[in-house]
């Protein structure tokens, strides 16, 4: 086994993702502790130039036509071959869609252990020790695993690092001739009725709103405030709000002047999308809900009492 810390370089449209740079920020300390190098794994087609500027000591560049787009099967096969051959101390992968697709598949293919939802990682002798966020952010688990593990890391776990000039080694891809997946298209959401990333005030609803009919309560408050209604993933998945209104990791990252979180528990994926808002006020009957850890002000009053009361009082002061 080598002592190197591998990082999967995620890139879209010729740009390396911020999540990748965070992985490099995390990898440096680990490599120092393990006595190895920080090594980027750059998969693509004719894109080895992206290696320059990565905060790595070395980059393994695998370039093939089959890797021109993110094809999960091709990525998993390539990365599995790479770790089987080089046997790194750890492989860090961002907990994005790409990461969720690839980390488990590489683990399944290679038999290497996988630690998911990691927010902190350290090297202790031959062991890796990770803190993972599970149960929707309600609990952390401190886990240890042997060397060689794959670790999927949640956003914001380390400061981003860039600006290195790594050596680049070209690595031949494995046999990718039998792929059954074809990349068809990348689709940008059509410009929608509203762009929640440019709104000053968001009245954001979560599962606690209870049902589609109750969205009206939030809409009335939003109308009174001159605000827009947004929501968490369960609300848009249920079809109570359009997808364009979704705040969070798989939706939009927002930074409004005021974020009023109504019945949102605050799963890590949601917090990733809104914790930079200037003022966060959260309403949730569960006083232990993680949303209160990022909110500036909170109330455990019942949403169905508080929303109408707020609407009425806003109308009164606006009149």
């Amino acid at each position: 086994m080598s002592n190197d810390i591998f990082v999967l370089v995620e890139h879209h449209g010729g740009a390396v993702s911020e999540a990748t740079n965070e992985l490099f920020g995390m990898a440096r300390g680990l490599a120092e502790a393990s006595g190895g190098a920080v090594v980027g794994c750059l998969l693509g087609s004719g894109e080895s130039g992206l290696a320059q500027g990565l905060a790595a000591d070395a980059v393994l560049s695998v370039q093939a036509p089959e890797l021109a787009q993110f094809v999960p099967e091709a990525y998993a096969a390539t990365l599995a071959a790479l770790v089987a051959d080089r046997d790194p101390r750890a492989l860090l992968i961002a907990n994005t869609t790409v990461g969720m697709d690839v980390a488990g598949a590489v683990s399944g293919r290679t038999g290497r252990p996988l630690v998911a939802y990691c927010s902190a990682l350290k090297v202790e002798g031959d062991t890796l020790v990770a803190i993972s966020q599970i149960y929707g952010g309600k609990l952390n688990a401190e886990v240890q695993t042997g060397s060689g593990a794959i670790v999927s890391v949640v956003g914001g776990s380390a400061p981003a690092a860039s600006g290195g000039s790594p050596t680049v080694e070209d690595v031949a891809p494995p046999d990718l001739s039998g792929l059954r997946t074809t990349f068809v298209a990348r689709v940008e959401a059509p410009s929608s009725d509203v762009d929640i990333t440019s709104e000053d005030i968001l009245v954001s609803v979560g599962r606690g709103i209870g049902g589609e009919d109750n969205i009206e309560l939030a809409q009335e408050l939003a109308d009174a405030l001159g605000a827009t209604v947004s929501g968490s993933r369960p609300v848009t998945d249920a079809g109570w709000l359009p997808k364009s209104r979704q705040v969070g990791k798989s939706g939009r990252k927002v930074k409004p002047k005021l974020y009023l979180a109504c019945g949102i528990s605050g799963a890590p994926e949601h917090l990733e999308g809104m914790s930079d808002a200037e003022l966060i006020i959260a309403i949730n009957t569960d006083e232990k809900a993680p949303i209160f850890d990022v909110a500036h002000y909170g109330s455990t009053a019942d949403l169905f009492d508080l929303l109408p009361a707020l609407t009425e009082q806003v109308r009164a002061v606006s009149a």
Binding site: P72, E73, A76, A80, T97, M100, D101, V102, A103, G104, A105, V106, S107, G108, R109, T110, P113, L114, V115, A116, Y117, S132, I134, Y135, G136, A141, V143, S152, L179, R180, T181, S250
Partner: peptide
């Protein structure tokens, strides 16, 4: 699932069986 400390079952299964897969 909320309990996937060692990753998501679907993709691990795909990896074990060498099947094509897609998440999210």
């Amino acid at each position: 699932t909320p309990e996937d400390l060692d990753g998501q079952t679907g993709v691990i299964l795909a990896g074990m069986l060498g099947l094509p897969h897609a998440s999210v």
